[in-house]
């Protein structure tokens, strides 16, 4: 890959919690403007990878560069270029969306008026203008998720990390977010997208990276992984993670209930 086009480069990434090795050596190069579908079974190490890339977990082995900047030696510069939308609705729920977005925007050094304008516009686009000044502890999970999505984009990041971003969103919002991600990629932004929703990953990603037990087990476009067999990503996922008898297992579960 042309080094000027590489936006994320990961070499030999390892991470352990005590004796438990979560990542056992991940190597990956991500091209600018691409949408990476980062998938894997529960506990495969997806969230850990994203937490390392976003600078939440600083204790890791291996080398990570983001837009040519070394994450370990210059984490602040990396953080200026990225946006992160976490899986669980981690926000200060006693604040209102406007207060929260103003806060996050200020951490990126944005002007308060600019943030307010931008926040209101974005909240309106997500059908949330009416609750812009209400405390978020009364919000549904989907509403909180929308605020998180806006907060992840408020600094207009070059690279966006999303960890299960659609959880709790209604069907219309899911369509909006999917289209939004495609549009962002067209503008040259890199999207690092982790999810269990295989149909969404299949539709929006131009490259799929599957990790299992802390190592990459498949890497390529959906078409190349599929090799013309016409199977869905869901089926491929099961195959690649070594799960062949899922239907049998489901049958046994039903029998156990009877």
């Amino acid at each position: 890959m042309d080094s000027s086009k590489v936006s994320i480069s990961i070499k030999g990434l390892q991470k352990s919690y005590g004796t438990h090795h979560v990542l056992k050596g991940i190597d990956l190069e991500v091209e600018s403007g691409s949408i990476i579908g980062y998938i894997g079974p529960n506990g495969a190490g997806k969230s850990t990878t994203i937490k390392i890339l976003c600078g939440i977990t600083s204790d890791f082995e291996g080398q990570v560069t983001v837009n040519g900047i070394d994450l370990r030696s210059n984490p602040l510069e990396v953080k200026r270029q990225i946006g992160y939308i976490p899986e669980k609705a981690a926000l200060y729920a006693t604040l209102t969306p406007m207060e929260y977005l103003e806060f996050v925007g200020q951490l990126y050094g944005l002007n308060r008026d600019t943030i307010a304008d931008k926040s209101l516009r974005l909240l309106e686009l997500f059908d949330m203008k009416g609750v812009a000044y209400n405390r978020m502890d009364t919000f549904s999970k989907g509403m909180q998720q929308k605020v998180l999505i806006i907060s992840g984009l408020i600094n207009n990041p070059k690279i966006l990390f999303l960890d299960e971003p659609l959880s709790g969103l209604d069907a219309n919002s899911v369509i909006i977010v999917k289209e939004m991600l495609l549009q962002l990629a067209r503008e040259g932004k890199t999207i690092f997208y982790s999810s269990h929703l295989m149909d969404v990953v299949e539709k929006i990603s131009n490259r799929i990276v599957l990790i299992d037990k802390g190592v990459v087990v498949a890497d390529g476009s959906f078409e190349s992984l599929n090799q013309g067999r016409g199977e869905s990503l869901e089926k491929l996922f099961a195959e690649l993670t070594g799960e062949k008898g899922l239907t049998d297992r489901a049958e046994k579960i039903v029998q156990a209930f009877e």
């Binding site: 976003c54 600078g55 939440i56 602040l76 510069e77 953080k79 200026r80 990225i82 992160y84 976490p86 669980k88 981690a90 926000l91 200060y92 996050v104 951490l107 990126y108």
Partner: peptide
């Protein structure tokens, strides 16, 4: 620990 998700990914020294 919400702080970990909100403050740590932002460019704050």
């Amino acid at each position: 620990t919400t702080d970990n998700y909100i403050l740590l990914p932002r460019p704050i020294n």
